[in-house]
Design a protein around this nucleic acid. Structure first.
Lengths: 83, 83
DNA sequence: ATGTAGACTATAGTCGACG
DNA sequence: ACGTCGACTATAGTCTACA
């Protein structure tokens, strides 16, 4: 068992919300974002719904396509997670 | 095949360097850091050597124990990755 | 205190199909 | 354009042991 799978879920949910807001603001569909990042459309969906947690390289490619710095996405997710 | 496994390696190496510097500066051993984060000592070693890539929740717990914000670690890794 | 190795379990990430 | 399901492959992360 990894450290705490409850924590992982909460992290995933925090990131998911941030991702969805950033994506909709940017006017991209999940499909378009996935295509640009070379990640699967259904996986973008899972990320946004907090069912999966991104690795660092996924964070990097998502942030690039959203015209955001990776640290800004992470900072937002961290803030959402902490509360 | 995931997006690009070459990119993943480079991300892992970038993060590994950042982690090692942050940890040695903080005066913690890999063992002590792993214990505090509830992640395996040998896995900390793999991360520092760029053999593995952290997930977001791993970044969160590492940064907490290093008294750093997650975004500062990510920003450094991103900078190292881009060059 | 760290690197490495092997065998393992859990989860990140892909893909095709359907509503 | 998105959610979901199932089956899959790749990799994150654990654990024991030895140098």
């Amino acid at each position: 068992m990894p450290a705490s799978s409850k924590q992982r879920n909460e992290v995933a949910i925090a990131f998911g919300g941030v991702l969805r807001r950033a994506r909709t603001r940017s006017g991209l569909s999940q499909e378009a974002l996935g295509l640009a990042c070379e990640i699967d459309r259904t996986y973008v969906s899972m990320l946004e719904r907090g069912e999966r947690q991104p690795s660092l390289s996924t964070i990097f490619s998502l942030s690039q396509q959203l015209n955001r710095s990776p640290e800004s996405l992470v900072a937002e997710a961290w803030e959402a997670f902490r509360r």
